[in-house]
Design a protein around this nucleic acid. Structure first.
Length: 119
RNA sequence: UCAGAUGGUUGGGCCAUUGCUCUGCCCUUUCGAGGGCGGAGAGGAAAGUCCGGGCUCCAUAAAGCAGGAUGCUGGAUAACGUCCAGCGAGGGUGACCUCAGGGAAAGUGUCACAGAAAAUAACCGCCAGAAUUUAUUCUGGUAAGGGUGAAAAGGUGCGGUAAGAGCGCACCGCAUUCUUGGCGACAAGAAUGGCAAGGUAAACCCCAUCCGGAGCAAGACCAAAUAGAAACAGCGUGGGCCUCGCUUUGGGCUGCUGUUUGGGUAGGUUGCAUGAGGUGUCUGGUAACAGGCAUCCUAGAUGAAUAAUGGCUCCCCGUUAAGGGGACAGAACCCGGCUUAUAGACCAUCUGAUAUU
C-alpha cells in the first residue's frame, strides 16, 4: 500500500505530544490523527533518530534499517490511515534484522488492539 | 636478518532479492504524472569549522584611527597562518627530526626569597705590617676559594705576585671595523678592544607587512490563505465627525461590494555541479610549481538518497573446531591548506647493528 513521508516538524511534534505511544525494546511507535485531515486518507510515516543513538554513521544505519523493515511490513500488511512516528532506540543497531521485523509487527498489532479497546 | 628514518599507495571482493535519489531515450497522458529499457550515485579525512580564496549581497571619494593576524632569508601561488629550497639554534651513533626564530641601548611592569653585596662594595677567607694578654685584635692589600641566587661582571690554562687580579700571553667566547663568498638570511678570514651586563615580548609595548562587513538560512525569481494599505468603478445617500454663531443646501472624511496594484508570509523554483577539475605525457625549474598536447565528465539530497538482507570468498583472533571480528568515519555552494581520528596491508629510498661472501 502507498505511504507518504512526514516532513514537517509540526507533525512530528504533534505525534510526540498527543499520539498513542507503544514502547518496544528497540523502538517506540507514536500514532495520531492527521490534522488538518488529508484529502485522501493514506497513512504517513516518519522516523526519528536522536543523537543518543551515536554518531552520524550509526544514525544513518539505524534509520535505514527501520525504513527497510517498515517497507517489508507494509508490503504484506495494511495499516490505518494515521500519522505514525517511530523513534529509534539503540537496539535497532544491534538486533538481528528478523528480530526488528518482528518488533514492528508486534507494535502495529498492539496499537490496533488499543484502538479497539478505546472504541 | 633485526631495529629504525622518510615519502607514497590502499582503506576487502563477488553474486542474488528488495528498495531510494538524479538523469538519457522511447511510449502513454486526464498535462498532475505513469510505464519500459539504460547510465551515475560518499571520504582520505566527507569530521573539527582553524586559516586563505572564488561566488553573492550590503557599504563605498580617499586616507587614517581603533581592532585583529603574521614575524630568519629567497621563491611558489588566485591567496594563505600553506608549500618548496636554504640559513641559524637544539636533539640523535646515524638516516633524520624539532623550533611562535624581529626588537630587552624607546618606555612600563614582573622575578617570592636568599645572600656580606645586585654594583661606589667585602661575610667567611687569603696575604703583608703592627700591637700584645701568644691567639687574638687593629691597619692596609686582594677578589682565586666558600656559601646564596635566575644572575656575583667573560671561560680554561700558563706566566706573574706577599697574596691576587685581562695585570700579561695562548685558545675559546663577545663587540667594533674591514676583506672575501652568497640575490639574501648568513658563513669564512683578518685587525683592533681587554670586554658590553640578567631573564621575561605565548606581559603591556615598539617596528615591518596584510586585512571593509556579512554569508548559499548569501542572493534571484514565482507566489496561495488571512490581515492591512493604495487606486478605480458601482451602491447608499441613511448614520457619525469636520467646516459655519445656528439651520438648510453643498463639500470633505468614515461604510459596503467588485476589480486592479505593489509589498510579501506559508510553499515552490533557482543558485547547484565544467572546475584555480582529474588522468597520461612532454618541456622549463634542485623543488614547490608553471606551460604545451592528448584524453575523461565523475554524487547533488533538503526530516536530507547513495542502502537493507542473505550467501560465497579474502584477512585477523582462536591449537583444531565452534565462534567472533574487519579501523576512523557520512557530501550539504565550491576550491587550496591546516588540525584531529584511523585496524591492517603494500611499495620505494635511506640509516645503524649483526652474519656471510
Amino acid at each position: 500500500m502507498t505511504v507518504v513521508c512526514i516532513k514537517k516538524r509540526k507533525d512530528f511534534v504533534r505525534a510526540t505530544h498527543y499520539g498513542t505511544k507503544i514502547i518496544a525494546k528497540s523502538l517506540i511507535l507514536q500514532a495520531v490523527e492527521p490534522f488538518p485531515p488529508l484529502s485522501t486518507p493514506i497513512p504517513r510515516i516518519g522516523i526519528t533518530v536522536t543523537k543518543k543513538i551515536g554518531n552520524a554513521v550509526q544514525r544513518n544505519r539505524s534509520r535505514r534499517r527501520i525504513r527497510a523493515a517498515l517497507h517489508n511490513y507494509l508490503k504484506m500488511n495494511s495499516v490505518l490511515p494515521l500519522d505514525y512516528v517511530t523513534v529509534a532506540r539503540p537496539g535497532t543497531l544491534t538486533d538481528p534484522f528478523v528480530e526488528l521485523e518482528k518488533t514492528i509487527a508486534w507494535v502495529f498489532k498492539k496499537h490496533r488492539k488499543i484502538l479497539a479497546e478505546v472504541l
